[in-house]
Write a protein that binds this DNA or RNA. Structure first.
Lengths: 217, 217
DNA sequence: CCACACACGTGAACC
DNA sequence: TGGTTCACGTGTGTG
């Protein structure tokens, strides 16, 4: 026991706690120096301890990244990490090919759950804007949207309109300075029936206008 | 200081004394310590060698999986692997959210699903179109795109432009009958550097024109 | 010379 | 009981 640790060696102790018992002490001490009590200390001792500590720390954080850990051991950590990387690579490849081969109507994730929809737009445009919805036909609408000119705002707007079940048949958009103004001529997709006020509410929430302004027929 | 420690001579002799000789190729013979000159050899010597070997092997194959290796060292192997896993995880998440968005079209044509699904997606708009790219500035381009007017075509176009790293600053699009024509004023996002020809090639491939310039009906 | 990284053999602790 | 895993201190090579 009682190795004279000159330093704390924190991570090591942590790993020791996890994997092994703390009790890995006691130097084999096969020294044959003629010095009476003075024990020869390698110059690397401390450095080596640091190195091991760091290495174990990395190993531990590597393990923490892998979801399925089979065993708490160095070998299985590496094995699992290897398998996990392979799996991730494969997954990325599949997703990429899937995404590339059929770009259907992908949107970034906006239009699935309403609760999310009303909450996620923080990164969308989040400003005061104006939304006008005019009904041109039973399934055709004219949107006039004024909002802050933000990076990606227009793309997101298109996506939102798309995921709501509308087809953009015609659009004119101009952005200048900090304001962006767009006019969309949209048409409900087949089988989609969205009430006008709902469309307006959603767009208003997305664009960042708190409560209504105008709806006209 | 201890600069005078007789490392090469005494210490080495000590090691040699302790564990036989050259120490590399030893047989796992269970030596007894009673022997006059023969020294005791640990029982797990060979096992430990195997363990180390296996561990290093894993470490090596882990390194072989990671594309960007900074240094050939254990620590950087682990660090790079960690970063790589993080990157992959992020990538997968992005791809999933990007892909997970519109059940619309697929649900619609689920009747004759599989064959159509696997056949239709390959080309997004699958028509002959025309793509013109004009460079307005080092990072600003003007796109003139003519293609078949297809459901969701415009949205897809915007998404493609967006994912390629461009910001749509201004757009005018008109669709009539079976043809759609759009003019995009786009600007490369910060840090994005896409060559003009690449942009054009990608858009052409997406829109469905085989070779640039020509529109064929 | 020194900092760093590595492999080695060993005792101990855990099934 | 062994078989397995671990941390340790050390020698050595490289820059």
């Amino acid at each position: 026991m009682a190795t004279d640790y000159p330093e704390s060696s924190n991570a090591m102790d942590f790993v020791n706690t996890v994997l092994d018992i703390g009790g890995d002490e006691d130097y084999p001490e096969p020294m044959l120096m003629d010095m009476p009590e003075m024990r020869y200390k390698s110059k690397n001792l401390e450095a080596e301890r640091r190195r091991r500590s760091k290495l174990n720390s990395k190993l531990f954080s590597l393990r923490s990244l892998v979801p399925n850990i089979t065993k708490m051991s160095k070998e299985s950590t590496l094995t699992d990490a290897i398998d996990y990387i392979k799996q991730l690579q494969k997954e990325v490849l599949e997703l990429q090919t899937e995404l590339l081969s059929m770009p259907d109507e992908e949107v970034e994730k906006q239009g699935s759950a309403s609760s999310i929809n009303t909450m996620t737009p923080p990164d969308a445009i989040h400003c005061q804007g104006k939304v006008e919805v005019s009904s041109m036909d039973h399934n055709k609408f004219l949107l006039k949207i004024t909002c802050e000119n933000k990076r990606g705002g227009f793309s997101k707007l298109v996506e939102v309109i798309n995921t709501m079940g509308f087809e953009v048949t015609n659009v004119s958009s101009v952005a200048f300075s900090y304001v962006s103004q767009s006019v969309f001529f949209i048409e409900a997709k087949d089988g989609v029936l969205v009430p006008m006020h709902e469309l307006k509410e959603f767009l208003s929430a997305f664009v960042g206008v708190s409560e209504d302004t105008t709806i006209r027929n």
